[in-house]
């Protein structure tokens, strides 16, 4: 299994997310995470999907099929080395006097910000790439995690390249 990240520029219309994700389901690709939001133009939305795939030809077939959807304007696979990817996580920890200091140390090392603090709980925010977030979550597993919410990744290519209609066949 390999992990891929693809950005899909779509027309900003209702039902479009359904059309795109349905194609992943039909080709039996498992979506790891997905973000969707408006872009610099109100006309378009940008969907960033991270998914696991078996092989390149199945992946290419998925892109080909996606590309045929009339609402899909452009598709770009984002290579880790050529792109900047970020994810935001909110993590709620149990606030226990015995572990408090250790949690705070780890948070400092990862630049995680405390955004809510009560007698019983601490909510921290961390923006980083997914790997770094995974590492932080693993550290936190030594303590009591109450809840986690991650946004899924957003990703842009490095340099001045932008997503645009590409005729890649």
């Amino acid at each position: 299994m390999e992990r891929f990240t693809v950005a899909v520029l779509v027309k900003n219309q209702f039902g479009v997310l359904n059309r795109v994700t349905s194609m992943f389901r039909r080709r039996q690709f498992n979506i790891v995470c997905l973000t969707v939001s408006e872009t610099e133009s109100a006309e378009f939305s940008r969907i960033t999907v991270q998914f696991d795939g078996q092989n390149d030809s199945a992946k290419q077939q998925l892109y080909n099929q996606l590309y045929k959807l009339p609402d899909v304007c452009s598709i770009k696979e984002l290579q880790p080395q050529d792109s900047v990817s970020r994810e935001l996580m909110l993590i709620k920890m149990e606030n226990d006097p015995e572990t408090r200091a250790a949690i705070r140390d780890a948070a400092a090392a990862f630049n995680a910000k405390t955004v809510d603090y009560t007698r019983d709980s601490i909510v921290m925010q961390l923006t980083a790439d997914s790997r770094r977030i995974d590492d932080f979550v693993n550290l936190m597993r030594d303590f009591t995690i109450l809840e986690i919410c991650r946004t899924g990744i957003v990703s842009l290519e490095r340099g001045n390249a932008t997503i645009r209609k590409v005729n890649y066949l």
Partner: peptide, 17 residues
């Protein structure tokens, strides 16, 4: 005419869309 048919089931030596 449909690029998605090229290399879908059979790997062509030349796929012409």
């Amino acid at each position: 005419i449909d690029g998605a048919e090229l290399d879908k089931t059979v790997h062509p030596t030349h796929g012409l869309r």
